[in-house]
Design a protein around this nucleic acid. Structure first.
Lengths: 341, 341
DNA sequence: CTGAAAGCGCTTACAG
DNA sequence: CTGAAAGCGCTTACAG
């Protein structure tokens, strides 16, 4: 049988309370006593039953997810994943609260972080927007021991404990390789469509893409990037405009949201050979595009994985436990029509 | 506060023991009493604390993983994942045993299943080999309530509860699309290299690949498949032979193990344009091949995901709980040099 | 058919 | 600085 606190107490000749003090590193135990207990722990190979400890403590993990009130499919999906986690969490002594903030609003995010910090909770997951105000709060909360996890969009160089998201530079490079290999010998240029270059993710994707094309496929030219503001109508307008002015668009790399607009325009067709199209995030729209053959590949980050990973990291952080880095790495999924989940 | 069994007992005017009987569906409760308890449960919105229940019961989940004693990197990795899970399992009241069987030996597998079944355990995960004997044992164990999960290789049409693995037909189709798109206008044929066509996985991959090429890229010809027996030396010999006899090999799809042999031959170079190479399973070898540019894409199933998913399914099955199908679907990963984890 | 009491492994006031 | 006792939410013999 696995040893319990009783075995340790007996072996060390002390009471349960003392074993508990040593186990939890609480003060008020004389060094020799502490050593006897520690000796017993390692002699018997004791490992504490965390479930039992949590039961006794009435421990409830309190986490807050700060999510942008953004209406694109990806963010809606992310939110749904958090909501699903809330269901599950109820049975597992973890309580999750969702706090909404306007999208891309750093002041609002800073305020929300501040507020969440007031609530004396164990940890916060949030979609980062980079600014001095946000960095200040993060610094202060980290100092106070709150576990902070960035979700989808990182705040590199800050004291957040972990980033649950993908490497967007690598994602851009991946898109570049796929695009250029799919284009093969075909001539023509590539049109990059961003959501907003104010956001780190999009900047990274563009950088990864442009650099990789320049380095590995130097003959392939890129058109100037356009910003669709994650808005289908705007994306459609920009794309129509671009296609009217240029006959030589052979590829489109859309790395923001608003792909409904993209598909609308693509479906208008124009007699010419269809461009190679690569977009980000698997949504109902991009899935349809893939199945219908208008989209050639979708790069994806799995919102479910991100949320569950963030929760594991938050919990491990709250317990002061280590975590398997390999298990928490979020993959850059490549989906073709054939390997759609 | 969340209601506990005490609240239910008080509300229904019965003792804890009776609440427990109803909660666990045990016999010996008069219908009216049972109904009072059930009313209390739904009135208070009670959900049982599984951790506390397991503590009280001293419940330990007992699972057995039956793994082929196969020395290829993928199987070694799979085994390592199970071993890692064993570490974690100790703290979570689950006990996992690994049982080895010779690879591709259905009689041995049937015997191992039989034996594991004797041990009165909760569930078994196993890499299936298809045969009547295996199907018989599976049928019998399922009948007796043992939870059975196939791992990596399925036993379709049997009474196993779940398959933790990928859709290999879809994997073959995915390889076909990537191969033909990467080849583009380049002429030449594709050489398929199997491990063994005795195994369902490999047959499925070949079928998915061949059918998809025939359907979507009808001008592209396939050479007859060769079987490398998952053995690097044999793969190397077969490939050298093929390259000597044919000058027109433009693509290689290797969907078994033994890719060390493949890389050795590719590195010999031969002045001609290098073929497009797609292989299965991300291992140290295939990673090197990808980074070195000899391999163009790796299709992968994540052994860690498969093992952890199998465990979740086994546990849920043992608890009679439902599971999120979406969360348990194993992805067909596509790795290029750029999105390598 | 139903209940009182002890116990799972750990923690927490409270005394001393 | 240390310990005896009660309790977390649930289950299990044992009595009746």
């Amino acid at each position: 049988m696995k040893p319990t606190v009783h075995d340790i107490a007996a072996h060390a000749g002390v009471s349960l309370a003392t074993v508990d003090r040593v186990l939890n590193g609480r003060a008020g135990v004389r060094a020799p006593t502490r050593e006897r207990v520690e000796a017993a722990i390692s002699a018997l190979g004791f490992v504490r039953d965390v479930a039992a400890a949590n039961l006794a403590k009435g421990r409830i993990y309190r986490f807050t997810f700060i999510l942008p009130a953004n209406d694109n499919s990806f963010m809606i999906g992310l939110r749904r994943q958090v909501e699903e986690a809330i269901q599950w969490a109820g049975r597992e002594r973890v309580s999750i609260r969702i706090v909404d903030v306007p999208a891309f609003d750093d002041a609002a995010l800073a305020a929300a972080l501040e507020q969440a910090g007031e609530d004396a909770i164990d940890g916060i997951a949030f979609v980062a927007v980079d600014s001095g105000a946000v960095r200040d709060v993060v610094e202060r909360l980290a100092e106070r021991g709150t576990i902070l996890v960035t979700l989808v969009s990182d705040l590199a160089g800050s004291r957040r404990h972990h980033f649950a998201g993908i490497d967007n530079i690598a994602a851009g490079q991946t898109a570049a390789t796929l695009m250029c290999r799919f284009l093969g010998a075909r001539s023509g240029k590539i049109l990059p469509i961003a959501g907003s270059l104010q956001v780190q993710d999009h900047r990274d994707r563009l950088k990864g893409f442009s650099d990789h094309v320049a380095r590995s496929y130097p003959c392939r030219a890129l058109l100037p990037v356009v910003e669709g503001a994650d808005n289908p109508e705007r994306v459609a307008a920009l794309l129509r405009e671009a296609l009217r002015h240029r006959e030589d668009i052979a590829g489109i790399y859309s790395f923001g949201a608003g792909n409904r607009g993209l598909l609308t325009v693509l479906e208008e067709g124009r007699g010419q050979e269809a461009p190679v199209v690569i977009v980000h995030e698997l949504t109902e729209i991009s899935r349809q595009g893939l199945l219908g053959g208008r989209i050639d590949a979708v790069l994806n980050q799995d919102a479910g994985h991100e949320v569950r990973s963030a929760l594991r990291v938050l919990k491990a952080g709250a317990d002061g436990a280590a975590l398997l880095a390999a298990q928490e790495r979020i993959r850059i999924d490549i989906f073709l029509k054939e390997n759609l989940p």
